[in-house]
Deep mutational scan, measured.
Amino acid sequence: NQASVVANQLIPISTHLTLVMMRSEVVTPVGIPAEDIPRLVSMQVNRAVPLGTTLMPDMVKGYA
């Protein structure tokens, strides 16, 4: 099972991601792979992401 990136807190819209905001967890459905966490740092979310939500490629500007 592959770990995905999950929000560690509420991430407001247009926030630049930091390591503190993300954790890796095995979830269904599978989202952005956990090994991409370093790549996600300083990218922006294009919507509010609630605590515990799996980050999907379409939620992060410039990821997909």
Rank of each mutant, 00 (worst) to 15 (best):
N1E: 15
Q2F: 13
Q2A: 15
Q2I: 12
A3V: 07
A3P: 12
S4E: 01
S4I: 01
V5D: 02
V6P: 00
A7S: 11
A7D: 00
N8M: 06
N8Q: 10
N8V: 08
N8H: 06
N8Y: 03
Q9I: 11
Q9C: 10
Q9K: 10
Q9W: 09
L10C: 15
I11W: 02
I11D: 00
I11F: 02
I11L: 08
I11R: 01
P12N: 07
P12E: 10
P12I: 04
P12D: 09
I13M: 12
I13F: 14
I13K: 11
I13E: 15
I13Q: 13
S14A: 14
S14R: 11
S14C: 10
S14V: 04
S14L: 13
S14I: 04
T15Y: 15
H16I: 14
H16G: 07
L17F: 01
L17N: 00
T18A: 09
T18D: 05
T18P: 00
T18I: 05
L19E: 06
L19W: 15
L19V: 06
L19M: 14
V20F: 15
V20C: 13
V20H: 15
V20R: 14
V20T: 14
M21Y: 05
M21L: 05
M22Y: 01
M22G: 00
M22C: 03
R23Q: 04
R23N: 05
R23G: 06
S24G: 15
S24W: 08
S24I: 08
E25S: 09
E25H: 07
V26C: 11
V26I: 13
V27E: 03
V27D: 02
V27M: 07
T28R: 05
T28S: 14
T28H: 12
T28P: 00
T28W: 08
V30R: 06
V30L: 13
V30F: 11
I32H: 02
I32R: 00
P33G: 06
P33Q: 06
P33H: 09
A34L: 03
A34Q: 07
A34G: 15
A34C: 08
E35N: 12
D36S: 10
I37D: 00
I37P: 01
P38T: 12
P38G: 12
P38C: 14
R39P: 02
R39G: 08
R39A: 10
L40D: 00
L40I: 10
V41A: 04
V41G: 00
V41L: 13
S42E: 07
M43Q: 07
M43G: 02
M43A: 07
Q44W: 05
Q44F: 07
Q44S: 13
Q44M: 14
Q44K: 10
V45K: 00
V45N: 01
N46P: 02
N46L: 15
R47P: 01
R47K: 11
R47A: 07
A48Y: 11
A48V: 14
V49I: 12
V49T: 04
V49R: 01
V49H: 03
V49A: 04
V49W: 04
P50D: 09
P50H: 08
P50N: 11
L51A: 14
L51S: 13
G52W: 04
G52S: 07
G52C: 04
T53C: 09
T54M: 03
T54L: 04
T54F: 03
T54K: 04
T54P: 08
T54Y: 03
L55D: 01
M56E: 07
M56C: 13
M56A: 07
M56N: 05
P57I: 05
D58I: 09
M59E: 01
M59L: 04
M59P: 01
K61D: 12
G62Q: 07
G62V: 04
G62S: 10
Y63M: 04
Y63T: 03
Y63G: 04
Y63P: 04
A64D: 13
A64Q: 14
A64Y: 06
A64C: 15
A64V: 11
